[in-house]
Design a protein around this nucleic acid. Structure first.
Length: 551
DNA sequence: AATCATGACAACCGCAAGTTT
DNA sequence: CAAACTTGCGGTTGTCATGAT
């Protein structure tokens, strides 16, 4: 597509600039009063000016470009233009198959860390990669294809194994420089191991469009176009309720729930902390089908960009991404049977369950996923607990449990903050892999046996696996057996040995633990009715254990 | 032929971290 | 030490081209 604008406008704009009275007065920076900085497509004339300037003065000090070159562009725009289009050695044109594969692999490891990914693709810009990825996920989503091809999973697996042998949980930093060479990211490694065990099949759970807990959590319900999926069977009304009021409490509760995560790597901790600490709207109703395995949260969420998704206690961010619905809409779901679904959502719901519906999760550009989802789920549980308490007591809006949990979570968040590792891809990686390479088969079930669309069998299996005490001796073997759909299993393999139920009980209370167990058991009824709700539980277990075992 | 959907691309925006003043 | 500034990153939006209906 040609961005012929430059050519078409060539000269013209340049001329305008030259002739412009402002040109001579353009000394001011982008904020200079009186000078209106140009926006929109760059012309070749502008490019020329910028190139000349950079050749003369070098990169950096972009605001000076506007001041000294006469360009009516803010420094930011100049930097972007240079980095994405004018910089030497830029590789233009479509991505090669190798590049595409690499992007997929990198994304599996890094999530939406476009700049970091770009470092692995000489001549490519983060923007290109980002655009490619976003387009790709849309395309594959529509096609019902897995976001991460099996071969990529396998390769990543192999690489991860190498990295695993040498890397520890904390290898992230070292690894990030050359993640492709030796992946030491813990989570991904584990994931890939799991994938290996499962032959890396069926990346998506055919089932529900995911609610994208992450998206909901970070941006305020269903902000993500890909995350907004909800099971038709879901109780929408419950889903979004209490979000504001509960968020703060719930989020807080989570923090405390995880007193220590010394073993988590930085990034992981960061993501988790963010997620945990984030006042995500949690669903008071545990029956809400969250697609955990499916989660698609978004990398963006966890990954990152904290800018918009920063934990803001107390209130759901009104900020709405392109496809999201207004909160009001969300709220309306409670009353109206058909929620304002996105096209994609509709497609997912309506499309055949087997192949791609799940895609939404997997393909979410913002997968943050797993952690967010976990937290969200935990929150949901705690919220449910609170809710039940409220019903029973019917006396106060805030139950003791709320307060206690809230406090716990806050603490946890604080501590996690200390372990942030911007480099670690865990959050994303885990998410990506979980979401996108989620095998339908559970440990117990064979790959040849596709799971029912309504259920997320992986959850069941995983719960069992987790229950099997993870010991260093058995860890490796178990890892292979783990369903890679379950991040929790992975986490468990690394750090946890106690039963999840106990952990949950300690964290959220016995009743919740019991419920969790129930969900984990994967009774057809619960699964069907709850969608993936069981998955979140399972996923969350490790975290619970963490808190229990790592005070 | 008109319309719509999709893909590809470019650019902007807001935020956050780092640096300078 | 704080404010201002710079830079970088990631998300989002807008535009155009193309193909399908």
């Amino acid at each position: 597509m040609s961005r012929t604008t430059n050519e078409s406008e060539d000269g013209m704009l340049y001329k305008d600039q030259i002739d412009s009275p402002l040109m001579d007065e353009s000394n001011g920076g982008s904020g200079n009063g009186g000078i209106v900085l140009k926006k929109g497509p760059w012309t070749s004339a502008e490019d020329t000016i910028l190139v000349e300037y950079v050749n003369r003065h070098g990169e950096g000090n972009w605001n000076a470009v506007q001041k000294h070159s006469g360009l009516f562009r803010c420094g930011k725009s100049c930097r972007l233009r240079w980095a994405n289009h004018l910089r030497p050695n830029l590789k233009k044109g479509a991505f090669t198959p190798d590049e595409e594969r690499l992007i997929v692999e990198l994304h599996a490891k890094m999530g939406n860390k476009w700049a970091r990914m770009a470092a692995h693709l000489p001549g490519r810009t983060d923007n290109e990669i980002k655009n490619y990825w976003n387009t790709r996920i849309k395309r594959r989503q529509r096609a019902g294809l897995p976001l991460y091809p099996p071969e990529v999973c396998l390769q990543a697996l192999q690489e991860s194994q190498q990295g695993q042998s040498s890397g520890g949980i904390n290898g992230a930093d070292g690894a990030h420089n050359d993640s492709m060479q030796a992946n030491s990211f813990e989570i991904p490694d584990v994931v890939f191991d799991s994938l290996k065990g499962n032959n890396c099949v069926l990346p998506y759970v055919p089932e529900l469009p995911d609610i994208s807990p992450g998206g909901m959590l970070m941006k305020g319900l269903g902000s993500s176009p890909y995350c907004g999926f909800m099971s038709p069977t879901m109780h929408r009304q419950k889903r979004l309720r209490e979000s504001t009021a509960l968020f703060s409490t719930s989020g807080g509760s989570f923090k405390n729930g995880f007193p220590q995560f010394d073993q988590f790597q930085n990034d992981t901790c960061d993501k988790i902390a963010r997620t945990v600490g984030f006042p995500f709207p949690h669903d008071p109703d545990p029956t809400i089908p969250l697609s955990f395995g499916v989660i698609q949260g978004s990398h963006s969420l966890s990954n990152g960009n904290s800018s918009a998704s920063k934990p803001t206690t107390g209130a759901v961010k009104p900020e709405l991404p392109s496809l999201q619905y207004p909160e009001t809409d969300l709220g309306s779901w409670s009353t109206s049977p058909p929620p304002p679904l996105l096209e994609s959502v509709d497609a997912f719901i309506q499309s055949p369950p087997l192949v791609g519906t799940f895609e939404s999760d997997c393909t979410s550009p913002r997968n943050s996923g797993l952690l967010d989802a976990l937290l969200h789920e935990a929150k949901t549980l705690s919220s449910a607990n609170n809710h039940s308490s409220e019903k029973s007591s019917n006396s106060s809006s805030v139950t003791p449990g709320d307060v206690a949990e809230s406090s716990n979570l806050n603490i946890c968040e604080t501590e996690w903050e200390e372990y942030r590792d911007p480099i670690s891809p865990l959050g994303h990686s885990a998410t990506s892999l979980f979401n996108e390479c989620t095998p339908i088969s559970a440990s117990g079930s064979s790959l040849d046996e596709p799971p029912p669309a309504e259920t997320f069998t992986g959850c069941n299996v995983e719960s069992e696996l987790v229950d099997q005490a993870w010991t260093p001796d058995t860890e490796r073997e178990t890892a292979l057996q783990l369903d890679y759909t379950r991040p929790d299993a992975i986490l468990a393999s690394e750090w946890f040995g106690n039963s999840m139920h106990e952990s949950i009980a300690s964290l959220l209370g016995d009743d919740l633990a019991a419920e969790c167990k129930h969900l984990a058991s994967g009774s057809p009824t619960s699964n069907q009715g709850l969608g993936f709700s069981s998955c979140p539980w399972n996923t969350m277990l490790p975290f619970c254990e963490m808190s229990a075992q790592h005070p």
